[in-house]
Write a protein that binds this DNA or RNA. Structure first.
Length: 816
DNA sequence: ATAGGGTTAG
């Protein structure tokens, strides 16, 4: 074992001599009589059995005990979960209150029976602990352990498990049969780490460890990714001669996979002499999780060649790998095999197939399969919803949703997520309201979706409401929920809100910090974003790829060119992060915006990755901004090669031709666009007033107060013209006359939203607008002037960032 | 006699 650990030479334990792991102080219970411990554990178990057999009918005795328990102040009761399970149980553990008189003659069998009866009928942890104390005081003889054998398979709450662990650790010689059951009980609980503590106890005593404990222990090691401990277990298993037990070996394969060591997993796998379908399944899943799908298929074929017949489980694993690899043809072939094998009735397989088709973009095939099912399990319907969601088919998803008879939380969440993904956050929130009406309790995942819906919507009042909801319903302590709240506040234009959540978080991870850096960056506070980033080092948090995207983004949106270059270099050299396309994109953006177009183009030419639409798009945008037509047209052409329907590139090329008076080219470009049915993505804007969200499409008149709004627009334009405003039409398609061009600009949706905000003026409040596209130069000027003339703060979120207008100036310093 | 593998919302 020593040799094994040292040969890998990792971590602090190499060379250190120890058996098992350390047991935290809080779990050692001093002064416990060993016989009493065994007795108590047994009683604990009896109690569970009794509870199970009496599940529904509450006897008089139980009622009596409950009443007594409440009288003595205990309110914990893990047999009746409705009563909750308080921390008080632990607090009273060391000072139990005895509810009955101690017996004078403890050693009699009468007394033993009496106590045994008390124990088996005890209904709360508190009561059990009181009895425990009673045993300790009376020094009772050890009863038989037979009852233990059938028991520990009931589900348990974490607290009672840690209690039974502390009892367990004081049994000097637990038999392996019992200890394995307990280990398994721990491993399935919410705190699987207890398994390792119990295992460590057994090891410390040098006993109780047989071959059957290893699969369980390894499973836990894999779940908690404790690679050092895993290797110790590996070493011990080999030393004890279980190294060639197929169950142990399979556990080892999975353990190494769980710890991110696929090669070590494969090494164990390769030297196995007997591999059954589970072994193959574990190995295949390992490769699937790290995205090596070719290996998945190769292994699957190898498995079939070695005459192991695939079962439902392994089929579903391979199917899901096909989905993630977008390998439709292989997926279809397996579908065929499944049909022939008659396994298609398995709901796991059905949902795996549906979601595979969804990932491969073939919802027709998914629908075909779905239509054939006589009963449609919820999971399969949910897979259909998320399949349609992935493919942008909201209506089809909704149809499935509406046809479902029994809806669970997951399918509600899936439908909400679908709306968020398709940029329909209001519909998602509407569903959330319906959930409330139906009294369906959301969970953490639901909350993450709803919070994300609010972030997409960008409406601050909705955001505040959902934040209150989060706190009221006890989600406020969750790390991921808080991370989502930071993002939400940032996207709703409230940097203060984001900071407040950030500051109030007791625990932060790299996502938290990255989220806050992004929040500062999109609000134009690049210097603070960088400060926060540099603070990461003190916090012992390692920035990841995403963190660097945020920081580089901050630099590029504030023109911090040198800083950006430096950070990009440190990402590669100090943090060993290989730049991805997004990072190069940030650099192109950074340099392009700063009018260092040659350098930006050099990045595109020299980077080791093939430039994509985003890269060329960002170069093109920079060229448009700086009137660099030649390079711009080149970028536009590359862009159109990759995406022939790219609206921006078509408009830009056409406009360049016009600017250079190549009228024929310009006309041709426009005709081409018309033929292909390409038009600029229609702009829309939203404004939240009085808890209502109003949406405006460019040039549309469907708002009930449209006349008033357009009148207001004329009035405002008149005012602004007096302070020097002239509509700027240079980015409009050229085949319009000047008057039309001016209207095309004036009717931009954000101006309509702004005017509606001015009509519905709320005292002292600022106007918050959300826009789907990047704000155009004309609107930008317009907003600045209105903020001055009307003395009104305006906050506009566009596709990439926020603009805070105040007193004629914008927070972006006209650099966006 | 006891143990190891999977599906739907993020």
């Amino acid at each position: 074992m020593q040799r094994f650990a040292r040969s890998r030479s990792i971590g602090p334990v190499a060379g250190e001599r120890r058996r098992g792991f350390l047991l935290p102080d809080q779990l050692s219970v001093s002064g416990w009589n060993r016989r009493a411990s065994t007795f108590l554990l047994e009683a604990f178990v009896c109690r569970r059995l009794a509870a199970l057999s009496e599940k529904r009918r509450t006897s008089n005795r139980t009622k009596h005990l409950q009443i007594r328990m409440h009288e003595s102040g205990g309110e914990d009761d893990d047999l009746f979960p409705a009563n909750g399970f308080g921390a008080q149980a632990m607090a009273t553990a060391s000072h139990p209150v005895l509810p009955f008189t101690p017996h004078q003659n403890p050693a009699t069998s009468h007394h033993h029976h009496h106590l045994h009866h008390q124990l088996t009928s005890a209904t709360s942890l508190t009561h059990l602990k009181q009895l425990h104390a009673q045993i300790l005081r009376s020094n009772l003889p050890l009863p038989s352990t037979s009852l233990l054998l059938h028991t520990l398979s009931l589900s348990s709450s974490p607290l009672s498990l840690s209690y039974s662990l502390s009892v367990f650790t004081h049994i000097p010689k637990p038999n392996p049969n019992l200890s394995n059951k307990l280990l398994r009980e721990f491993s399935n609980s919410r705190e699987p780490y207890n398994t390792l503590l119990a295992y460590s106890q057994l090891r410390g005593k040098g006993l109780g460890v047989d071959r059957f404990c290893f699969p369980t222990v390894l499973k836990v090691v894999s779940r908690v990714k404790a690679v050092i401990e895993g290797m110790e277990v590996h070493g011990l298993a080999v030393k004890l001669g279980f190294g060639d037990d197929p169950f142990v070996e399979t556990g080892l394969v999975r353990m190494y996979e769980g710890c991110g060591r696929i090669l070590d997993a494969r090494r164990v796998f390769d030297k196995m002499s007997h591999r059954d379908v589970v072994t193959w399944s574990v190995m295949i899943n390992g490769y699937s999780q790290v995205g090596l799908f070719d290996d998945v298929l190769a292994l699957f074929e190898a498995m079939k060649s070695s005459n192991v017949e695939p079962d439902e489980v392994i089929f579903s694993s391979v199917i899901s790998a096909c989905g993630r690899a977008r390998n439709l043809s292989y997926g279809k072939a397996i579908h065929e095999s499944i049909t022939q094998s008659g396994m298609l009735t398995d709901p796991y397989l059905q949902s795996a197939l549906v979601s595979m088709y969804g990932s491969c973009g073939s919802m027709e095939l998914a629908q075909n399969l779905y239509d054939q099912l006589s009963t449609k399990p919820i999971v399969v319907s949910t897979a259909m919803i998320s399949g349609y969601s992935k493919n942008g088919q909201v209506e089809a998803a909704r149809l499935i949703f509406d046809q479902m008879t029994g809806k669970d939380l997951v399918c509600w969440s899936a439908m909400m997520s679908c709306y968020v993904e398709s940029e329909k956050p209001l519909e998602a929130l509407e569903l959330f309201n319906q959930m409330q009406v139906r009294r369906i309790k959301p969970d953490k995942v639901t909350m993450l979706i709803v919070i994300s819906a609010c972030a997409h919507l960008g409406a601050l009042k909705h955001a505040k409401w959902i934040h209150e909801y989060v706190d009221r319903h006890g989600f406020g302590g969750d790390l991921r929920v808080n991370n989502a709240l930071i993002d939400m506040y940032a996207k709703c234009g409230s940097l203060e809100g984001a900071i407040e959540v950030f500051d109030g978080m007791p625990r932060k991870n790299v996502v938290t910090w990255t989220g806050m850096v992004t929040a500062l960056a999109i609000h134009g506070e690049a210097v603070n974003a960088l400060k926060l980033f540099y603070q990461l080092e003190n916090e012992n948090i390692k920035p990841n790829e995403v963190t660097f995207v945020s920081v580089l983004y901050a630099c590029s949106h504030s023109g911090l060119v040198d800083e950006g270059r430096k950070i990009f270099a440190s990402m590669v050299e100090e943090y060993n992060i290989t730049p991805k396309l997004v990072h190069y994109g940030c650099m192109v953006d950074l340099l392009g915006r700063a009018n260092l177009l040659t350098e930006a183009f050099e990045i595109v030419e020299q980077m080791p990755l093939e430039p994509n639409v985003v890269i060329w798009g960002s170069l093109m945008a920079a060229c448009r901004f700086h009137d660099e037509f030649e390079l711009g047209e080149f970028a536009a052409k590359r862009l159109l090669e990759l995406d022939p329907d790219h609206d921006g590139a078509h408009v830009f090329s056409s406009n360049i031709s016009a600017k250079e008076r190549r009228w024929e080219d310009a006309r041709e470009a426009r005709i081409l666009m018309k033929q292909k049915g390409i038009s600029k993505e229609r702009g829309w804007s939203r404004i939240e007033l009085n808890n209502e969200v109003h949406e405006f499409l460019m040039g549309a008149r469907n708002h009930e107060q449209a006349d008033e709004i357009y009148a207001k627009l004329n009035e405002v334009v008149g005012e602004l013209k007096q302070v020097g405003y002239a509509p700027n039409t240079c980015n409009v398609l050229v085949d319009l006359d000047e008057d039309e061009k001016e209207k095309a600009v004036l009717w931009h949706s954000e101006k309509l939203a702004l005017c509606y905000g001015l009509i519905r003026e709320e005292e002292g409040s600022c106007i918050r607008i959300v826009k789907n596209l990047r704000i155009c130069e004309d609107c930008h000027t317009f907003m600045k002037l209105v903020s001055k003339v009307h003395q009104k703060n305006i906050i506009v979120r566009d596709r990439t960032r926020f603009h805070h207008y105040k007193d004629g100036l914008c927070s972006c310093n006209d650099y966006w």
